[in-house]
Structure formats: structure tokens, C-alpha cells
């Protein structure tokens, strides 16, 4: 476990760069993390997914599975993969300051 400075805050991250304490997350941090993941601008569509993930994250702070996101947020599979290309499962979790999803589907 290490700490890093991002968007003017010091946060704890694991070896893969995921925030380990979801309560340290801010929207400004999400913007910076998104840039690091190759997403230059977070649109309303991105925020819909991020907000849904934050709201439905369990007590352990794990991000919902992709299937849970598409069936719960109204964002289709196609949209989800175009908003967060090349690996939405990890990208949504990381940008939303959550842990990786704990389910398979």
C-alpha cells in the first residue's frame, strides 16, 4: 500500500493504482484518473456509470459487475464499452475509486 497525490489530495492506492479507501474519492480525482486511463473528458454518460457504480458498491467497496451496470443503470453494453474502451470492468472501478468487481458476469 502506497500513497500518492492526485487532484490536490493525498490518497492511498494499491499496487495497481486502485484507491483502497472509497471515501477518499472526489470527482476531481475521477477526472484525473480517467485521463490516466486514456479518457480525456468525462461526459454525462461516463458520470451516469460512475455514479451508479458508487451508489451500488457494496460495503467492501467493490465495483458492480458489467452486467450489474448495464441492467441497473440503463447504459447498454455497446455504450459501456464505447465510454470505457479496452477494459470497462477495471476502468470503471478505478475511476470510481472502487475495488475490482467481485462477480464473474
Amino acid at each position: 500500500m502506497t500513497t500518492r497525490a492526485i487532484a490536490g489530495k493525498i490518497v492511498e492506492v494499491n499496487e495497481e493504482g486502485f484507491l483502497t479507501d472509497a471515501s477518499q474519492w472526489t470527482k476531481e480525482i475521477a477526472v484525473e484518473l480517467a485521463k490516466e486511463e486514456g479518457i480525456d473528458l468525462l461526459t454525462d454518460g461516463h458520470w451516469k456509470v460512475i455514479d451508479f457504480a458508487r451508489t451500488s458498491a457494496g460495503n467492501g467497496g467493490a465495483s458492480p459487475t458489467l452486467r450489474a451496470i448495464t441492467s441497473g443503470s440503463g447504459v447498454s453494453t455497446k455504450e459501456l464499452f464505447s465510454l470505457f474502451p479496452k477494459g470497462p470492468a477495471k476502468k470503471v472501478a478505478k475511476i470510481a475509486g472502487l475495488g475490482k468487481p467481485e462477480g464473474c458476469v
Binding site: 458489467l66 464499452f81 479496452k86 477494459g87 470497462p88 470492468a89 477495471k90 476502468k91 468487481p101 464473474c104 458476469v105
Partner: peptide, 11 residues
């Protein structure tokens, strides 16, 4: 299931 997981991880 494996294919879906792989797509989710960017493969």
C-alpha cells in the same frame, strides 16, 4: 463467461 471477463479486462 471467460470471454466476457476478458472483454471487461480489455483483451
Amino acid at each position: 463467461i471467460m470471454g466476457w471477463a476478458a472483454l471487461g479486462n480489455g483483451l
